[in-house]
Design a protein around this nucleic acid. Sequence first.
RNA 1: GCUCCUAUCGUCUAGCCUGGUCUAGGACACAAGCUUUUCAAGCUUGGUACCCGGGUUCGAAUCCCGGUGGGAGCGCCA
Length: 483
Amino acid sequence: MSNIRVRIAPSPTGPLHIGTARTALFNYLFARHLGGKFIIRIEDTDLLRSDPKFEKNILEGLEWLGIEADESPIVGGPDAPYRQTERIESYAHYLKKLLAEGKVFYCFHTEAELEEEKRELLETKHSPIHLCEYRTMDIKEAETLAEINSNYVIRFKTPAGRIIAFNDLIRGELSFQSDLLGDFSVAKKIDVPLYHFAVVVDDEAMDITHVIRGEDHIANTPKHILLIEALGFCIPQYAHLPLVLGTDRSKLSKRHGATSIDEYREQGYLPEALFNFLALLGWNPGDNREILSKEELIREFSIEKIQKAGAVFDFVKLDWMNGEYIRKKTSDELTRIALPFIETLLSGKQFSLDYITKVIALEQPRLKKLSELLEKIDYFFEEPQYDVSLLLWKKMTAENAVAALDVAKKLLEQNKEKPITAMKEIFLQKGKEMGDKGSLLWPLRVALSGKKASPDPFEIMEILGIEKAARRIEYAKKIAVLS
RNA sequence: GCUCCUAUCGUCUAGCCUGGUCUAGGACACAAGCUUUUCAAGCUUGGUACCCGGGUUCGAAUCCCGGUGGGAGCGCCA
């Protein structure tokens, strides 16, 4: 067991996002590969936007994906609690310390003033940073003022002229000038920490050794390092992951399509497929393998192979991969996970599990996602509805169709005791005699399925039963005659 | 505007560190063909990429410099 400890710290302000899930995944793979711990901590200090229902969604989503945490608000752990709102005392403690040491200060600028300042800076082509005059105010004086004027914020006294450099595990040596940071805010009040401060305090408290997060955090890293130094903490190793992009190459967001794990789950993507797919978004094992199990991914994972540039989330390739995983399932497994997707088809009717399993297995090779099942197999559970034109093969007329269906009906009756393979042989033979197998088999298949695309009619018949098949052929004839 | 990150087929990527074996490999998608009663699957084939310009070198996707493109960040959000 190594002492490697990594974490993700999502804020419960929305459902589990693809990007968050992938960050979690890389942290998880990294930890598992090295025998370390993967921790989930909830950043819920933004009381206005945080919602327990999103925390639940995030935690459940990760669990569903198979990214299980060693420590989290639900499983607990030695560094509990794992929710920021429950760790307020520790932030207050360190904040007071920094205040006493003069490393942070009270800023009494109003939001309107700051906005005005920002606007002016931008107009004069300067970086919109806030260098605060209050940083030199006497601490006693500031504290007195803070008591009567609660409209303040606590800022970090960013040192001037410093170069902050760190080694990013993915990007190499990165460096930033402290002068471009400004006096960034660290807390709204003593007991209301802001992100930069809370994250640094929590990471220290939880002995986080590696911070693996999205590329959008690169510019925050120098701030964190400065805070860590001011607090006398240990600087962790950093790794900044490339972003997950939409098709227009901007950061993946709602307008690109489904972005929450929920939506994929509801559409019938398998967690293993999504796990595999997300792992390959910005990483690869270095050879041609693409379908990799969780165990293989853990074994093969290496941070050096992580890509530097953002990766477009390719929905089409995900569909392919999901199909691959669907095909790997046994029919019993597939039925078990598919059942919720065909509930509406089954409600109020009596079908044996064996029947349902056979039907699902029939569509297994052509399934991309479970939500497609409903419209593909409906004819096994209710009588198909279709137009006469669908019955006609190539240049066939309705009369031809009736004739073909008559032939089919007769063959069916004469051979109903024979196994389905023998039956198929007989039909194929007859079809050949008729000159074009399609002229016999197409109307038959449509009569059974009511679809222009479906499995082989004999496979359908085998499940449906000869009697029911005969009835559907009869019905098809009626439609053709009536036209 | 400023700062930072980044650059191989449409997309995900291998190759780059340690130049030649790269007429640049794989996968998804696409097209054609085979098979075929439809669909899917399978098999075969095909088209499509080293951002641009300089330099170093006998030789550059690979090393160096300069551009350009794309992205992200710049909150009393995280």
